[in-house]
Each structure stands twice: as C-alpha cells, then as structure tokens.
Design a protein around this nucleic acid. Structure first.
Length: 849
RNA sequence: GCCGGAGUGGCGGAAUGGCAGACGCGAUCGAUUCAAAAUCGAUUGUCCGAAAGGACGUGUGGGUUCGAAUCCCACCUCCGGUACCA
C-alpha cells in the first residue's frame, strides 16, 4: 500500500495489512534525516552533562561477503540493549566499524588477482547496507575501518609507544609456522596443533619476529578480573587457565664438569629427593655445549633434528610412547649432591618453564612413563601417613594431610606443604633456588608474513639496527604489489621501491620491515578510536576517552573469550600505563551470545543449510527477523533456526499492528488513556486489560534487567496482545476504548527494542509522536496488585484445591477458609492436620497423619 | 584427564524452594469463505475414566524439606574450552 493510494480505494478493496517494508523504510528515513542515534562528545552541541552514559558495543565484524545470521543475532541483541538504555535515561553510544585487514581477502586476491582493498570495500558496503536495512541504531558519524590509513596510522603510532616502553621487541625463537598460509601464528592461533584459519598442521620454525610483552601483565590480567562488573564466569575461567599461573620453586641443577647451571621450575619442590634423572627440551639453547665433545653428540643431534621436524600436534600427543636420548654428562641435585643422568626428550617443552625439568618418576605420570621406557630408578618420596601401601598409580602426588615425606633426609615425616616451605628456604640460603611463579602465557607474536595487514613502522638500518619510523612520517602506507602469493616472506618484500629507504636516524641506506601485524592488533584498540574518530593529532583524546570508557556493555561471540578479549585488556593496561587512558579494564560487562544452528548443525555452505538474513528481511521485514532471533531462546545460548518459528513471530507482529490499525487513527490521541487516576478508577474488562498491560511492563522490565532474558520479554508482550484480542469484544464505551488504546501503545512500547520500526509505527498510530523519545514505561503498583488471591491448597504436598482469599489475609482467616472447603473436608475425613504450612498470598499445605 | 555449561511435552523453551510445561511452533476441532489462503475462537504432558476425578511425570539412584525441575551426594549422557604445562 503506497502512500499516494486514494484512501477510498485502500479501504474498500483491501483489508488492512502489516506492510513491514513500507513501515521500515519510513522510519529508517526519519532516523537518517534527523541523525537520531548520534551521540555527542563532551563539549559538543547537544551533549548533556547530567545524563548517565552507556557505551554499548558489539564486536566489530570482519567484512567478508555478506553478513550472516550470526551477525543478525549479535546486532539485534546489542541494539535491544542500546534502545532499552536510551529509554531508561542514558546517553547511549553505539558505533560501528569493520575489522577489515585479514587473510580471507588476501587469499581471494591470490585466486583472482583482485586487490584485497577492492573486495574488502565491496563487502563493507554490503554490511553497511544490511545494518541500515535492519534499522540498527548506530551512530554512523563514528564509522571506521581498520584497513584505512586514517586508522592504521594510529595502530602504528600505538605500536611505537609500546616499542619505546619496551613492550614491543624483536627476538629469534622457535615459532609456529603454517605451511599453507605461509606465515607464523601466535600461540593462541594454534588449535590442537593446527592453524586456526586453515586447519593445516603447524610446524616449528626458528625465526626472528616481533613480540608484545604481554607476559609482563600476566599478574594484572589475573588480578583485575576483580575490577569487572559482570563477565560470564566461563570466560574468566578460560582466560585464567590460559594465563596458567602456577606457584612453585626454581631449583638449579649444576653440571660440575662444565660449570654450567640448569634451573628448573617445579610446583613440587617437596619431591626434589625423588628426582632420579633430568630432561632438557630439544630446543634448549645450552644443549650444544652440553654434548660438545661427547661420544654420542651425533646421535643427540639426530634426535633433536627429528623432534623439531615433528608437527606440533603429533609431538603434543600424550598417548605417544616417550622418546629421548641419554647425554653423557650428568647434573647434580642441589638438595642431596646426587649425580643424576641427563636426557633430551621431546615431552619437555621449551616454551614452558625453563625448558628443563627434574624428573620424579614416582610422582609424575610422564616421568614415570619415561623411566619405564628407559629402565630408570623410581624412588617414592611421599607415602600415606598410616604406613599403608601407596597406590600403584605413579601419579600419587597428593598433598593432603594424610601423607608424609619419606626418603628425603631431614624432611622425612613432614607434610608435603611443610617440606615445600623448608626446601625453598634451604635452596634460597644456598643460592641454589628460590620461590618462583610460572605462567603458561607466552608473549604475543605479532609479525605476519602476509600482505593485507598493518605495516610495522620500523626501518632496519645496518648501522643503527631497528629504528622506529618518526611519528610525523606515519602512516607507513601499505604499497601496492603485483603478486600476493606468500613465499616464506611477506609479499611486501617485492615492493622494492617501498622497501628501500633511508634510516631515520643516520640517513644511510636502510630497509623497511616487511612483516605486517597480526589483525588482532587492529582490534585491540578500535573501541577507543570510535570515541574520537576524526582526531588527527592523537589516536583519541584522553578526556573524551575518560568520559565514555569503560565500555558499559560489550556483546560478542564466545569464540573471542581468550584471544581478542585478552589482547584488548592488555592494550588498555599498556595505554593506561603510558598515561593515555584512565581505565584499567576496557569492558565492564560482557555478554556472549550463543550460535544459531539449523537442523541441529553449524551452518555451512557445503551442508547447504545456511540462512541468509537478507532473504528473511525481504520476505518478512527486519523487525520479524530481529525479534525472532531474540525469541528463539535465551540469547546467551544457541538455538536452532526454524522457519515456522519465524512465521509465528511475524504473525504476532501483524496482530500487534492490526490492533493499532483498529483504533481510529485520526483525531485526538486520547492522552487520558495514560492517566493514572483514570486507570485506577476503571473496572471490569477494561480494568483487566489495564492490569495485564502493567503486568507486562513489570515483567519486561525485570527480565531486561536480569541477564537480558529477551525471550521472556517478548513472550510477555505476546500475552498482552493475546489478552487484548480476547477481551476486545467486552471493551465497550469510552473506558473500553481507552484501555484498548493503552494496551496497544504499551505493547508497541515494550516491543520497540526488538522491532523498532513496528513499535514506532504502532505508537504513532495510537499515541502520536516518536516512541524513542518516550521514557521506558513504569508499572503502576496499584494496577499490579489485586485484592483477591487464588490460594493453592495442598494436602500432604499434593495440590487438591484452590480457595479465594483477600490479599494479606491473616493466617487464621486463611485456615478457616481452607477448612470450609468441601473438598478439603472430604480429604481430611475428620482428621486434624498435624501441621499447617501457610505461605502468605501463595499456598496452604495441610499435613495429616 | 582437568575446567565450565546443559539434560523439562512431538519441537524451541518457561518456572531458581511453593499451581511443572508460560510464550511460540506443530497438531486437532470449530467459525468465516463458493472454495482456498489469511484471519478469529477452542483444545492439546502421559495413562485410567463417560464424567467427576485419580495415578504418573523435569537424565538415573539416593538425601534434605511440610513441600524439590530448583538445594546436597553419587552416577549417566550431551555440548564447549583446555591439556605431555613439570
């Protein structure tokens, strides 16, 4: 039905129909024209210093192809929160941007020759168009894309501040190399020994690479979980485990012959007397010196070479039989002076602890297996205190009160905990060890040998070493290249004119760094750039950032629980340490939404079960699609997309629209329908409908506040609409019409966060004006309360009857009413209850015999 | 193995110590229609019963309680994370 259809024809020929497309276009035009969702910064026109701020942020999308149903869900959830916060009096900032550097665009370029910028920007245009079609209330004036030089200039600038602070450094180490993508990967990007992106088994490779010193922040990353308001417990746990702090001791084993010290980390210093051998990782840097000049040096080197070639997945397999080679030089146990043999074995990892372990086969499963294979002595040093036989299990390492130390000199008889303290004291006194804390977390490897990323702003000078590019020369722009294929080094290396430059320090000939940054660097600070996107002097102004930060509500997929969320926390702390920012934690509240499946399976092109949100938006309108994804179930859990469910939601929205359509649109909007005094005087069916409306307001508000229970918020509005239909026939006269109007307006108001177009339209039809300017409704306690309560009557805990009693009736009166019931009398059959439980205004339970 | 989360009708789910199954889907019946679609209304956990009503019922077994889907103990299953981490 177009706007210029003559009224008579529309009324005569066609029944009124909910025309979602027309309604959605109408309101989207209004919001675009009046820039409704723009949030002014402090000091700008329209800024209200008295309004509470709410920074509502959904993780920015990686723009590839078209948005999928996961995007629909996450932005629908975020927008519902944004709308709710606005109408509860907050100045809401909801921005949007694109995480637009990355491998898929580059792989596409390798296949087609199309520049990644071209395909990426095409995809950004699709995303933007769909977000507009969905009517997400975004402040578009702050839009950004991480591949734009205006953005990555500041990524480079921040890199240089971290470099100056000693938090970015270059080091040679064994790294994870993906042979398929021809690039190194961070620890966090290796899943089960395979590349996170392409699934290829990663291989170890020794390379000089750039790192961020995130390990310096390990303790603060752990401690500051206390500063968060509300994060899902499992996300905190995952990060805790990833950081993997363990307390123990460092003990130094000495090779007397060479005068070399080998420190080890152990969480069980109390078992030091049980160490019967010593093991080094194949990558251990001192291995060469240790085997130099010994008879089996060749055999050791062969073993090491084989171990280093082994894919990480295979080496990490705990089921594999232990392998290793015995070296010819022993080391000395610092507590008892005992000489024990040294092995090299690939079950010891260079990246954890010191790359060397003391092996206690009696109390460690892996050491036990190794000792079995190589027929080495096993010496128990912890036994049950009652003298019973220890369990057969080699992993008998309990630290409980009912075990005692044995075979350990003067430690014998102590509990493990006491022995631990004593031994650390002794080690420290001798200078042979100390209390130590160890982390699983590694420094963040950020170099990538790929094209489509942010260039690292460093120049390598033969005289001065790595020299930072001066701030005023930023951005170091990504040059165009002819061939995107990776060849073991970044495709940037082929851009000769770009690579060859002069040293900013000595002006001699120098070469640019050709690696690019991990794209997680780009997304580690984007939430700050939104705050001040036009700033040409700094990445962001501190005063503006201090106003908006922290993000009040962050929303995204749980798949980012470790990587992105930990990196962003690290960046925030590092920037705060540089005095650039006043907060220690970027995201006060985190909400992780569950994944949508179809027919119980993850959507994928190969399975042919992909839901394209654009299809549903075209067919039913965005409001239906958005409301459906919020209605499927609690949004933090997953859900299965069912087309019939979409129909159901569309039916509900149509019913709501028709309610509005039935009310005379023209003439006074009858503000009296909202008059509390009038509402309280109403009786009968109008009163029942008004009460239902206030019940829905109350229910919706509570469920919004409690964990964003959107499915039950929507269900409450459905109930209200259903009641309006049911009671419609009884709603006669002024009171009836007003109650009907109030119920419809309330339903529109409550559904607005999920279906903002329909909500606005229905509101305009029955109340007039712009719904988003209306405060969130408040339930009238007087209309929530009823004077008579239907009380549940149980006999011996089983439901037997119901009686009506006045609200707040005294216990004696309630019991009298219960005993007066014929059914109760029949069931009691003359017996006196031994006990009567009365829960005021709820139930009575009579216990007999 | 370890750490999280979850098991409720035909299906998605609701109820977090007090009426199990809100709301939606599906199904059945009715109204409307020349007919269909759409729409409106009613019914819909299982079993027994003509009905009134009764029995059973939230993964399994036990416990606490007047009362348990909800709390406790043990176990089973599924999902997610993580793992030669010393």
């Amino acid at each position: 039905m177009s706007a210029d259809t003559p009224e008579s024809e529309a009324v005569a020929d066609r029944p009124a129909r909910y025309d979602a497309r027309a309604i959605e276009r109408k309101w989207q035009d209004v919001w675009a024209a009046e820039r409704t969702w723009e949030a002014p910064n402090p000091g700008r026109p329209g800024f209200d210093p008295d309004a509470a701020k709410a920074y509502v942020l959904v993780m920015l999308p990686y723009p590839s192809g078209e948005p999928h149903v996961g995007h629909l869900k996450v932005y629908s959830v975020g927008d519902a929160i944004a709308h709710y916060r606005r109408r509860t009096g907050h100045e809401v900032l909801q921005p949007m941007g694109y995480d637009s550097f990355g491998l898929p665009a580059e792989n596409h370029a390798i296949q087609t020759g199309e520049h990644p910028r071209v395909s990426t920007e095409r995809s950004i245009a699709s995303f933007r168009k769909q977000f507009l079609d969905w009517g997400i209330s975004i402040d578009w004036s702050r839009e950004l894309a991480t591949h734009s030089p205006d953005y990555y200039r500041w990524t480079q600038w921040i890199f240089l501040r971290l470099f100056e602070a000693g938090l970015a450094y270059r080091a040679e180490a064994a790294v994870h190399w993906c042979p398929q993508d021809q690039t190194v990967l961070a620890n966090e990007q290796v899943i089960d020994g395979r590349c996170e992106r392409c699934g290829t088994e990663v291989v170890p490779k020794k390379l000089e690479q750039w790192y961020f010193r995130i390990t310096d922040y390990a303790d603060r990353l752990l401690a500051d979980f206390d500063r968060l308001e509300s994060w899902p417990e499992h996300v905190v746990t995952m990060q805790r485990n990833w950081i993997g702090r363990s307390e123990g001791a460092e003990a130094v084993f000495r090779c007397a012959e060479l005068g070399m010290d080998f420190p080890v980390f152990t969480t069980r210093p109390d078992t030091l007397y049980g160490a019967t051998f010593f093991v080094l990782a194949p990558e251990h840097p001192d291995l060469d010196r240790l085997i130099d000049g010994t008879a089996n040096a060749g055999e050791v080197r062969d073993y090491v070479a084989a171990a280093l070639r082994r894919p990480a997945g295979e080496r990490g397999d705990a089921e594999r039989e232990k392998t290793g080679v015995r070296l010819e030089r022993p080391v000395t146990n610092p507590v008892n002076g005992e000489e024990i043999p040294v092995f090299v074995a690939d079950y010891v990892l260079m990246e954890y602890g010191t790359g060397a372990i003391m092996a206690v086969p009696a109390h460690d499963q892996r050491d036990y297996e190794f000792a079995q294979t190589f027929d080495l002595p096993i010496r128990p040093v912890v036994e049950p205190a009652d003298g019973s036989d220890p369990p057969d299990d080699a992993a008998f390492v309990t630290q409980s009160e009912d075990v005692r130390i044995v075979n350990s000199g003067d430690l014998d008889g102590l509990t493990p905990a006491a022995a631990m303290l004593r031994i650390i004291e002794e080690l420290q006194a001798d200078g042979r060890g100390r209390l130590a804390v160890n982390y699983r977390l590694r420094d963040w490897l950020l170099s990538r040998q790929r094209y489509w990323g942010c260039p690292i702003p460093i120049v390598h000078c033969p005289n001065c070493g790595p020299v930072p590019v001066p701030d005023e020369q930023l951005p170091v722009e990504l040059p165009d290249v002819d061939d995107y294929r990776p060849k073991g080094q970044s495709p940037l290396a082929t851009a000769t004119d770009w690579v060859e430059t002069t040293c900013p320090r000595c002006s001699g000939p120098a070469r640019r760094e050709t690696d690019t940054m991990d794209t997680f660097v780009d997304s580690s600070w984007y939430f700050l750039r939104y705050l001040d996107p036009g700033n040409e002097e700094l990445p962001f102004d501190r005063a503006i950032a201090d106003h908006w930060m922290p993000v009040d509500q962050y929303i995204g997929g749980v798949e980012h629980a470790i990587l992105h969320l930990m990196y962003a926390r690290f960046f925030t702390k590092a920037l705060a340490d540089e005095g650039l920012l006043g907060v220690q934690e970027p995201f006060a509240n985190l909400f992780t939404q569950g994944m949508i499946t179809r027919e119980g399976a993850k959507m994928s092109k190969s399975k042919g079960n992909v839901v394209d949100p654009a299809d549903y938006v075209a067919r039913y309108g965005a409001d239906t699609a958005r409301t459906y994804v919020c209605f499927m179930g609690p949004p933090d859990r997953g859900g299965d997309w069912v087309d019939e469910g979409v129909d159901g939601v569309h039916r509900f929205l149509s019913r709501l629209w028709r309610l509005a359509d039935e009310l005379p649109a023209a003439g006074g909007k009858e503000p009296s329908a909202f008059d509390a005094e009038w509402q309280r005087r109403t009786e009968g069916a109008p009163r029942a409908l008004l009460a239902k409306a206030h019940w829905a307001i109350d229910k919706a508000t509570r469920d919004f506040e409690r964990d964003f229970q959107f499915n039950t918020v929507i269900a409450a509005v459905m109930e209200l609409v259903n009641d309006a239909y049911r009671l419609r026939a009884e709603l006669e006269g002024d009171d009836g019409r007003r109650a009907f109007r109030f119920a419809t307006a309330t339903a529109a108001s409550l559904i607005f966060p999920f279906a903002p177009h329909l909500g606005s339209e229905a509101w305009e039809m029955v109340a007039g004006g712009h719904l988003w300017e209306e405060p969130w409704p408040l339930a009238d306690q007087e209309l929530l309360a009823t004077d008579v309560i239907t009380l549940v009557v149980q006999v011996n805990g089983k439901l037997r009857d119901r009686v009506e009693v006045p609200v707040g009736a005294a216990e004696a009166d309630v019991l009298a009413a219960v005993h007066a019931s014929p059914r109760v009398q029949e069931l009691l059959d003359g017996r006196e209850p031994v006990k009567s439980i009365v829960v005021p205004d709820r139930l009575v339970n009579l216990v007999v015999r």
